[in-house]
Design a binder for these strands. Structure first.
Lengths: 159, 159
DNA sequence: TATTGTTATACTCTATAACTATA
DNA sequence: TATAGTTATAGAGTATAACAATA
């Protein structure tokens, strides 16, 4: 006799539940960063110094390019980022962190580290590291396979 | 020299990225279930036969009780669920799956299993099981700590 | 008085399309 | 012709409040 497939066995349920809890805490932790957790991600992405065009950042963060405009408007108004023309392509703009932006990013990172550790509280240190690593691997791989959804759709038609 | 804290090191980024990929595929896999992946979760939750009041289901699924009304309206219109008065508490309603609802749930589950395996493709079988288990443990624990957000907020003020 | 469920309203978030300036 | 970015509009999704029925 097989146990009834509970919702809690569902990967989508687990992902959604954990992300909801994370966002509830993260919103407090990054208070002061316009755009909340996503504004933080923009800062973090810009801090790398590579792929800092608005479009590249939008794609890596999974948001529409129009949303990126709004996010950057607010971050720029708050003095956390600057938009400078790219000398190599004058259509594009390079997003640079200001000094205040760097400081705010560091503060947000400290807060988020605590949130993450609190969220992963039920796991021991080894398990936390394992979860982080596995999740990151899946995330990185799924980002590289944006175009293969059709293949899966075909595969699914047989269900 | 420490490596710059990339966005991809962020747990929130990984969770969001994986969930986005999951939803993109899951929407196709559960086509035909009103409400998409969340309609499926309602069916799955109702199938357990326990905690099938609308409020209890809404809470376990992390949606507002008003949203549950809309979801059930559509599922009932499609003939997948029935709302029966709870004899023990005539304010509440028990959500029951119809025969068609059970069949649709099974079909959706088969599709979602394939989606999950495709998503976890970059991991070997042991790692897939580990990720599922760890994520589920975190999800179950975070659901039990809904009330402790304030404690964390206080803890975070020192950041 | 508190709780379950419904409805109506408003708000936020996101997606679409049209526009500019460059390439 | 195609691309980066902006703007305006509309749409989906969500939250808020008020209500009826019951505890």
């Amino acid at each position: 006799m097989t146990s009834p497939p509970d919702v809690e066995q569902d990967l989508g349920w687990a992902l959604g539940t954990v992300l909801r809890s994370y966002l509830r805490l993260a919103n407090e932790a990054v208070a002061g960063v316009p755009g909340g957790p996503r504004g933080y991600q923009v800062l973090s992405s810009a801090a790398s110094g590579e792929r800092t065009s608005q479009l590249a950042m939008a794609q890596s963060l999974g948001v529409d390019r129009t949303v990126m405009t709004y996010l950057l408007d607010d971050l720029e108004k708050a003095g956390l980022v600057e938009r400078k023309p790219d000398p190599a392509d004058r259509r594009a703009r390079r997003v640079l962190l200001t000094e205040a932006g760097t400081a705010r990013l560091c503060a947000a990172e400290r807060g988020l580290r605590k949130v993450e550790e609190h969220l992963l509280g039920p796991l021991d240190p080894d398990e936390r590291h394992t979860l982080r690593t596995l999740l990151q691997r899946v995330a990185l791989a799924s980002g590289e396979r944006h175009g293969t959804a059709c293949d899966v759709a075909q595969e699914l038609e047989g269900c």
